[in-house]
Design a binder for these strands. Structure first.
Lengths: 187, 187
DNA sequence: TTATAATTGTGATGTATGTCACACTTGAAC
DNA sequence: GTTCAAGTGTGACATACATCACAATTATAA
């Protein structure tokens, strides 16, 4: 499981075993069961997470009590309420497991310490952030250019595994359509 | 106009005058008229841009020839087709001026050179990227949680100036609704 | 100025999608 | 196994929004 994080970082920046051991010391390893909260809406956000295994949802509950899925987070992803994490404000969304999940957690102080101690890691975080920004923009594009059916088909193509692992209600919420409409699209 | 960039950077990282002069040398200053293209869909993307003055649209034309506005870019913003810029692929969207515009352009080689020569600048880019990621995620949230009217009112609250500077057709395209619907919302 | 294009408002109508209701199935807990 | 909750499909109906059409107004250029 250390290997997972090591290989993940090494895909973008070279890192000796010795360096990695030091890098790893900035993180803490944590295990969660099903439906556990890593972040609760309205509370402080102390960590961002690298997901070793499992599956989570980044979710926002609106005034009407309706749940909206901003993102699913799976193996090899980084997730948090990044706005609340970086700005040190209260979480506007929750991060909750769908399946039992193992993560490496990185406190904000350590994020900064790690970035200054290892320029390579700052470079790594920069690349990750750029990729995250691009991914979000693609999602915006899919809202602008596609209707429910188009977005459904894109998701089916890019993340077929999700349709096995996640209840349709959650997929519908991620796509921005009602459960019923999604059901009709897939039949 | 150098001042604009200097103050913008100094809002996030401290920089001596001497350092800034060196930083500035990585950029080239460019002027554009109305409706000029900085990036054309399908072509290589060589620069990202800091906007000193003016107004642009980041826009995608789909198969049906319909135009979708991913983003407006105004003074003090950074813009590009970041996916194409970083991955060195062809642009999936165009960047075009709405008003006459002045920018500082940064070639990708210089982006990397600047980041290694000035750790502070890498830190700056990291913060900017994080903020960009967060902004995109907020836009996604607005698509998930709000209908056309809600998104219209949010935009009116956060960027009232746009309603003076930009034709309603473009605002509609940004909001993901038809021109006619936007017209009815505002009356 | 005059001519032409760009921008905007508004009615009539079609369609995609949401909402409510209910039944059926599947899986989890005791 | 029995029980209960979670997940799913589908009909009937309501509604938000798109599309098409046209007129009116405002910029832009010759």
């Amino acid at each position: 499981m250390e290997e997972k994080l090591k290989q993940h970082i090494q895909k973008l920046v070279p890192l000796t075993d010795h360096e990695f051991v030091k890098v790893l010391s900035y993180f803490s390893f944590e295990n969660y069961g099903k439906k556990d909260f890593l972040i609760r809406q309205g509370e402080k956000v102390n960590h961002c997470y690298f997901i070793v295994s499992g599956l989570l949802k980044l979710v926002l509950v609106d005034q009407d009590g309706k749940e909206h899925i901003i993102s699913f987070a799976m193996e090899d992803w980084w997730e948090s309420d990044f706005s609340a994490y970086f700005m040190q404000t209260n979480a506007s969304m929750a991060l909750q497991t769908i399946e039992p999940t193992s993560v490496y957690a990185l406190p904000l102080e350590n994020y900064h310490a790690l970035s200054s101690a290892f320029p390579k890691m700052q470079c790594f975080f920069l690349m990750k952030s750029n990729l995250g920004h691009i991914a979000s923009q693609n999602r915006i594009v899919s809202f602008l250019t596609s209707d429910a059916k188009g977005r459904y088909e894109q998701l089916l193509k890019t993340h077929p595994a999700l349709f096995q692992r996640v209840p349709k209600t959650l997929l519908a919420s991620y796509l921005g359509v009602s459960r019923e409409t999604l059901s009709r699209l897939s039949s």
